[in-house]
Amino acid sequence: MTEVVNVDVKLGVDKFHVDEENPHIIIKPNPDMAEFKKLMIACPAGLYKLQEDGSIRFDYAGCLECGTCKILCGNTILEKWEFPRGTFGVEYRYG
């Protein structure tokens, strides 16, 4: 029954207005990996990734603005968490 999820395909159907100049979430350099792992599990958009070489990758472009990472790690490994500027970010057509 298990099929490995491809979150990028799901994000592909959503509508985004990405603010290319202003990331609204920034991770601290060299984050605590135990904290980072929480975000790898919890982020509904799967934006917190561990690459094969052991380095981390995060891309705010597919952010659903759900607030999960702020709740879990806002005080630990996130340097910045704010809402995208007005008009930018995800736009729910159905919600």
């Binding site: 799901k10 959503d14 659903l64 759900c66 057509r93």
Partner: peptide
Amino acid sequence: KMVEYSAHV
């Protein structure tokens, strides 16, 4: 057909 994926706390 999946037409939207959304999430919130």
